[in-house]
Design a protein around this nucleic acid. Structure first.
Lengths: 196, 196
DNA sequence: GCCAGCATGTAAGGAGTTACATGATTAT
DNA sequence: ATAATCATGTAACTCCTTACATGCTGGC
C-alpha cells in the first residue's frame, strides 16, 4: 500500500508513464511541458526528484540503456503497483480546487498606482503571450486529435483552447475599458484637434 | 532601496494596505481572501509572516491598539518607502506568466484510468464549485461597482466573471463529449428498449 | 455548554525553484 | 567557433502549508 497522497506532480509523472510505457527523465521533461497549458510544468530537477521518489516507493522500474553517440540514459517504466496507485488517486482521492496565480490580474487589481500606459502595456503583452500559447496548443491538438489512446488529452486540449481564447477576449475587453474611461487629458486634446 | 523582488504575496499585502490605510493581520487575511478569485489566497500564517518581513524591510509601520471586549490588535500601515516599492514593482518589474494548476483538467487528462462515471462526477462537482465562486464574485462585484477608488478591483472582478462563466460552459461541454461518446453498452441497451 | 468570531503567533516540513556542474555529439 | 540537443544530477534556498497553541467575548 503506497503511502498515498503524493504531490500531484508525482501523479502527473506517473500518469505520463502510464501513457508512454518507457521514458527517460529527459523525455519525460519534454512531455511534461505539454502539461503547462493547464498544469504548471515542473522544473527539470523536480522531474528527476519525482522519479527518485517513485522509485523509492516502488511504483516504477528502471533500466539503464547504453548509447554510443549520446549520453547513456535510464528508462523508467510504471509497474503494477504504480498503476494501481495512480488509479486510486484518480478514482478515490478528493479533487483540489484549481490553483490560479494570475500575476497580470494582480497588477491590474492595484492599477491605481500604475504609470499612464503601463496597464495597457502589460495587457498587450499578456495578449501576445496568450496568443502564442493558443497557437502552440492548436498545433498540439491537431497532432493528437483522432488518436484514440489520446482521447482525454485531446479533450483537455479543447478545454485549453476555450480557456486561452477567453483570456484573450477578456484582456482585450479590459483594454477597451481602460482606454474608454482613462484618457482625461488626451481625450480632450484629441477631440480638440479632431474638431479643428 | 528595498531589496527588490519580494514574492508576489508580499506585494499583494502591500497593495491591500495601499488601498485600506490601516489594517490588522486578521482584517488583512479576510481581505486577501477576495484575491482568491484570481490569485490563490495565502494561508493565515503566511499573512503574518509577510507583515513581519515588510516590517523588517521598513516598508510598513505598525501600532498597537488595546481593545476592551476583543483581543488587542496591531494595525499595519504602508509608509512612503512601501508605496514607492509597490509602485516600482508594478511599473518596472517583469510580469510573470499566469500560473495555473488545474487539478480537474489534470485528472481528465489521465481519464483512461477512470472508473465509469468518475470523470462526470468530478466535472459536475467542479461545475458546482465554480458556480459558487461565480455567485460569490457577482455579489462582491455589485458591492464595489461604481466606487471610484475600487475601479481596478471592479475591472478584475469583471474579468473573473468572464473566467468562471467560461469554465462552467467548458466543463459542461466536456460532460457532453463524455456522455456522447462513452456509453458503449448502455447506448445499445437503451436503444433496444426504445425500439421495443 | 459550546461554537463562532476576533486576534496573533510558532514549529515543522514539503513542494518547488534557480543555479551550478559535467560532458559528448551534431549542426551552423 | 559556438550553440543546441541529449542526459543526469546536487545544493541551497524560498515559499507556503498544516497543525498546534492561546484566550477572550457573545450568541444559541
Amino acid at each position: 500500500m503506497a503511502k498515498r497522497d503524493l504531490p500531484n506532480t508525482a501523479y502527473a509523472v506517473l500518469g505520463l508513464l502510464s501513457l508512454h510505457q518507457e521514458l527517460s527523465g529527459y523525455e519525460l521533461r519534454k512531455l511534461a511541458q505539454n502539461l503547462r497549458f493547464f498544469y504548471w510544468s515542473p522544473a527539470q530537477s523536480q522531474i528527476y526528484a519525482e522519479l527518485r521518489r517513485l522509485q523509492k516507493l516502488n511504483l516504477i522500474e528502471e533500466r539503464e540503456v547504453k548509447q554510443r553517440d549520446k549520453p547513456d540514459k535510464r528508462l523508467h517504466k510504471i509497474n503494477q503497483r504504480g498503476l494501481e496507485e495512480l488509479t486510486r488517486w484518480l478514482n478515490q482521492e478528493a479533487v483540489e480546487p484549481p490553483n490560479l496565480k494570475h500575476s497580470v490580474a494582480l497588477r491590474l487589481f492595484f492599477g491605481h498606482l500604475a504609470d499612464p500606459g503601463r496597464l495597457e502595456h502589460i495587457l498587450k503583452g499578456f495578449v501576445q503571450d496568450t496568443e502564442v500559447m493558443l497557437s502552440d496548443l492548436k498545433r498540439i491538438r491537431e497532432s493528437i486529435n483522432g488518436k484514440p489512446n489520446l482521447r482525454y488529452p485531446a479533450l483537455v486540449a479543447l478545454w485549453g483552447l476555450h480557456y486561452y481564447q477567453a483570456e484573450i477576449n477578456t484582456a482585450k475587453e479590459m483594454l477597451e475599458h481602460l482606454t474608454a474611461q482613462e484618457p482625461e487629458q488626451q481625450t480632450q486634446l484629441l477631440s480638440c484637434s479632431a474638431q479643428a
